[in-house]
Amino acid sequence: MKQYLELVAHVIKNGTLQSNRTGVRTISFPGAMLRFDLQEGFPAITTRRLAFKSAIGEMVGFLRGVNNAAEFRALGCKVWDQNANENAQWLANPFRQGEDDLGEIYGVQWRQWPAYKRIALSNPAAIELAISQGYQQIAQAEESGESFVVLYKAIDQIRQCLDTIIKDPGSRRILFHGWNCAQLDEMALPPCHLLYQFHPNPETREISLTLYIRSNDLGLLYPLQEPAQYAMAA
């Protein structure tokens, strides 16, 4: 709690006013960091009431790959309703699939990241390797006189992280993210918290997590990340 309040004071004192897409100017201070030892307790603030059940429901939805506001509501989380059904830009987006649809948001990227490979037909070894990895050929075409195939599979990033933690805990490549540049226009809201890296310590049997947040409403939403307009950013 103390470091959170100190950070808020630091942002107010040292941040700069900036305009953004919401129309609400922010006091912005990039690169701030908070560290927590969960063995000392959960880092919940005590200066206001927290929507804890809603945040848990949202996280469960992410882990299930939910992309529909109705499914979030069923989990006790209503924060996605506005993004799904009241966001004028999303309502006009041809990728939106009707009421409550949210597109390819957080959980979709976490559990079903769309992966493609474009491999020349003249490289059968690479095609065979990709197929052995679970890719399926979905198209064949020609470009600049070269024939190639396109292969696809959905990647479960969470499953990959868990498997690596178990099988190779010393790896420094245990991470997942949600910032899929190719699908940002297919999302009701691009991810705010977008990169997560696990750091297991096989010697102490402990695990740390580093989380990168591109845009964090420090005053309103911290520490329970939920979509909303930004009034103060860190």
Rank of each mutant, 00 (worst) to 15 (best):
A231K: 12
I27F: 12
R21S: 05
H199G: 03
T22C: 03
Y152G: 00
Y196H: 15
A84I: 00
I166K: 14
Q18R: 13
G103E: 06
V66E: 08
N180S: 07
A188Q: 02
G134H: 02
A51M: 05
N87W: 04
I12W: 10
S54G: 15
G103A: 01
E86P: 04
V24C: 01
S171I: 12
L63H: 13
L189A: 12
L17C: 06
R73I: 04
A9I: 03
T204C: 01
K117H: 10
Y230N: 13
P200K: 01
R21F: 03
A92I: 04
H199D: 05
Y222N: 00
A51Y: 09
G61F: 11
M232A: 07
E58H: 10
V149T: 15
F42C: 05
V150A: 11
S122F: 00
S208Q: 06
L195H: 02
D101E: 04
F29H: 07
D156A: 06
Q39I: 04
V66P: 02
P169L: 11
T204Y: 01
S132T: 11
R111E: 07
E206V: 07
A9K: 15
P190V: 10
L221G: 07
C161S: 12
Q82R: 12
H10V: 05
T46G: 03
I165T: 03
A141T: 09
L38V: 06
